[in-house]
Amino acid sequence: MKNAERINSLSDLSLGSACQIVSLELSGLLRRRILDLGIVPGTLIRSIRRGPSGDPTAYLVRGTLIALRSEDASQILVKKLSNGEECV
């Protein structure tokens, strides 16, 4: 149970798996952009694919695909889903 509560950054999320947003450590314009897209604490997010060179990663949030660079994703903190929660 303790293990499920461990907090990671979004950039460490392995491809295809889902997790829940804990907090945004971003600031300024980018923080607002991310909030506007509905990436708020509590939101479920799933990593879908990486770009050809492996950098921007596309995430599925609320039915929309959004690509983020790893530098930005690393400032978004997430926790693993406990089993049985709905998928994104």
């Binding site: 980018l30 952009r33 897209l37 921007p56 929309t64 959004i66 983020l68």
Partner: peptide, 11 residues
């Protein structure tokens, strides 16, 4: 330095 990228990939 390069700043951020937030890019929507529409259906």
């Amino acid at each position: 330095e390069p700043s951020s990228l937030v890019l929507e990939l529409p259906s």
